[in-house]
Design a protein around this nucleic acid. Structure first.
Length: 97
DNA sequence: CACCTGACGTGGC
DNA sequence: AGCCACGCCAGGT
């Protein structure tokens, strides 16, 4: 993918406050031409040792995307105060712009 | 170049 | 609610 795109995406994710989340689609709209799928591609190919709060990126409707780290993601979010409703979804009040 | 495979979103049923 | 096409696009084979 284009380098500027990776930079835009990583920059945005780095700005998500602790205890808040945002979606792939939302990030995509903030960048210049990215799609939700390409945002996912960026997260998938992050280098080892990065410090990005990747756990704060969720799917539309506050659901967690189905991937290997989903279990871990849920723990990290819960640890920073993000709650899940009984259907496993994150309420809108935790969304960052 | 032609496929295939995803950390997606939306709309229809 | 759950399932399923479809559109989308970056990377790998």
């Amino acid at each position: 993918m284009r380098v500027e795109l990776r930079e835009q995406v990583t920059t945005i994710i780095a700005q998500i406050p602790c205890g808040r989340v945002t979606t792939y689609g939302c990030i995509a709209k903030m960048t210049d031409g990215a799609t939700a799928r390409s945002v996912g591609a960026v997260l998938r190919t992050l280098p080892q040792g990065h410090t990005l709060p990747w756990q704060r990126v969720v799917s539309a409707g506050g659901r967690l995307a189905d991937h290997e780290g989903a279990r871990r993601q849920r723990e990290l979010l819960a640890a920073e105060g993000v709650l899940f409703d009984r259907r496993g979804r994150i309420p809108a009040r935790f969304f960052w712009p």
